[in-house]
Design a protein around this nucleic acid. Structure first.
Lengths: 153, 153
DNA sequence: GCGATATCATTTGCATACGAACAAATTCTT
DNA sequence: AAGAATTTGTTCGTATGCAAATGATATCGC
């Protein structure tokens, strides 16, 4: 950083320099770490399924069967990602796949009986994971954080 | 859900059921989506490096050289993950590796001249990414969110 | 009805992310 | 000093996550 650069910055009203940059204050870094922490908590509370796998089952439980890509859109996964998740759930017998009648492109995904039983069993554990992730906060702070994040997402 | 289960829940004061569970209100789901959105914004603003690669360079720029695992601890990456990130940065000539004298286990990581130049060039763009990610919020809300996330992480 | 377009799904390649098993070097304990 | 425990790093396997290319089917425009 030269003296001329410093002068230019002052003239332009820009008082920040690369040296002032602090990674741990950046929203992206904090989001990455917070997400990591939650995934670890989720694994310790729920264990059986990963958060994406759980999300897929929970959404099917809420809304009933949909096509694979539609489901992906609802749980924020692109087509390539949702395929892998559904493949693994199918391999475990938690969902079953069928072709849509009338539109042979669509791959319909439905919960099996075991899938329904599994998600009902895991939902209370997922609530505990939410609770533990929010445990550093007061109820008021937890609500604030949830609302702010909902605004981003 | 049987009638007996309902009675039991009422007696125990538990009024939530699996049917009441809403994925989009869960902190984990929101963190995952918010993180995804930021990564997309970061890619569009910074482009050249991924957020983890950028984090490694930024940290080396802030603190100078450290060992690979130590660096990983500072930017929240386990040993296996940080290895891949550093390998790719090394392949691009942005960092250089050397063995620690006195402790031959330690792999020291340092910025190259090109690495330093790169991170100085990218930091202003990373600031823009932070800004855009926080654009749905007022300044006050942005500060609140950052502080709350820092508390989790 | 037919060609252009759009939608749905699959595949490949690359980049995190983590657990577990392992190897090498260092430090601790006795 | 010798053996045990710890630290540092590597490798492997599994699971997201996304871009880009491809194939199959539907729909639109004419």
């Amino acid at each position: 950083m030269s003296g001329e650069d410093n002068l230019l910055r002052l003239v332009e009203g820009d008082t920040t320099t690369p040296e002032d940059y602090h990674l741990q204050e950046q929203i992206g870094f904090l989001l990455r770490k917070a997400h990591q922490r939650h995934v670890a908590i989720f694994a310790s509370q729920v264990g059986d399924l990963t958060p994406p796998q759980f999300a897929a089952l929970a959404r099917l439980f809420e809304d009933g069967g949909t096509s694979q890509n539609q489901l992906g859109a609802m749980i924020a996964m692109d087509a390539a990602t949702v395929k892998g998740v559904i493949d693994r759930l199918k391999a475990r017998g938690l969902v079953e796949l069928s072709r849509h009648e009338g539109d042979k492109r669509r791959l319909m995904v439905n919960l099996t009986a075991e899938g329904r039983q599994t998600i009902e069993r895991l939902i209370p554990l997922a609530r505990k994971a939410t609770e533990e992730t929010l445990s550093p906060f007061s109820a008021r702070e937890a609500t604030t954080l949830t609302k702010l994040l909902a605004k981003i997402a």
